[in-house]
Design a protein around this nucleic acid. Structure first.
Lengths: 121, 121
DNA sequence: CCGGATCCTTGTCGATACTG
DNA sequence: CAGTATCGACAAGGATCCGG
């Protein structure tokens, strides 16, 4: 990874500042765990972009792919504590969007109530 | 503007989710006001990108360009309340970066102490 | 010198079709 | 269902140029 500067904000954006990463993490906070969950999202991410982002996020240590159970080849994705650490930033963005962009949905209560500690390991 | 969905988070990212917008706003919170201030930033934004982003941010109502004084052609930029509303999100990102990316600088205290109300008008 | 605009190259995004 | 391959469109980046 190479960063634009040592600034923690700019560097955070170097990791999750693309068009989709934070939207994917938002979906995970809301309960999405599988590839198809992410595709069903109203934002309509393309399959190649989704696959690449999931790889990048895993490489960055924000999510991890776990076998749901023995015999299941299908991976399910989960937030790591590092990934869950972004929840406050997402909540702040959500509040800003609700208050400053007309016609947005309201973030569900369970989203605003989510805390990084809810995603251990 | 056309949004990917009605989600306030995704929509917020449709406005400021590109590579530079939040970095520019961060600089303004830290006191930058002029075009050359933004260029002096350690992230080394290209002049064409900077000019376009400033135009977009002004159009979106996040910043405004004011004549410093009568006779001064040089524009100086200031955050609107709408733009300043992003401060909590920036602070959350900064904290995350400090705690999760090795070797980052520490956000100056005056940055973490900044409040949207400090930017009226 | 400051605040850009222009040109051109490079990189990233995105739609769609296809595969194990 | 969970991806990969291909290819076109568009955004970002670097260098240079221009007007006040």
């Amino acid at each position: 990874m190479n960063f634009r500067s040592g600034c923690p904000i700019a560097s955070a954006l170097d990791i999750v500042g693309d068009k989709w990463s934070l939207v994917i993490i938002r979906s995970m906070v809301m309960g999405a765990t599988s590839y198809s969950d992410f595709l069903k999202t109203p934002e309509k991410i393309a399959t190649n972009i989704l696959a690449e982002r999931l790889r990048r996020l895993e490489l960055a240590g924000l999510i991890l792919q776990a076998q749901a159970r023995r015999g299941s080849i299908r991976g399910t994705y989960a937030l790591t504590p590092k990934g869950a650490g972004l929840i406050p930033a997402l909540q702040a963005l959500g509040q800003w969007g609700e208050q400053n962009i007309p016609g947005r949905w309201k973030c569900p209560d369970r989203f605003n109530a989510a805390r990084p500690e809810d995603f251990p390991r």
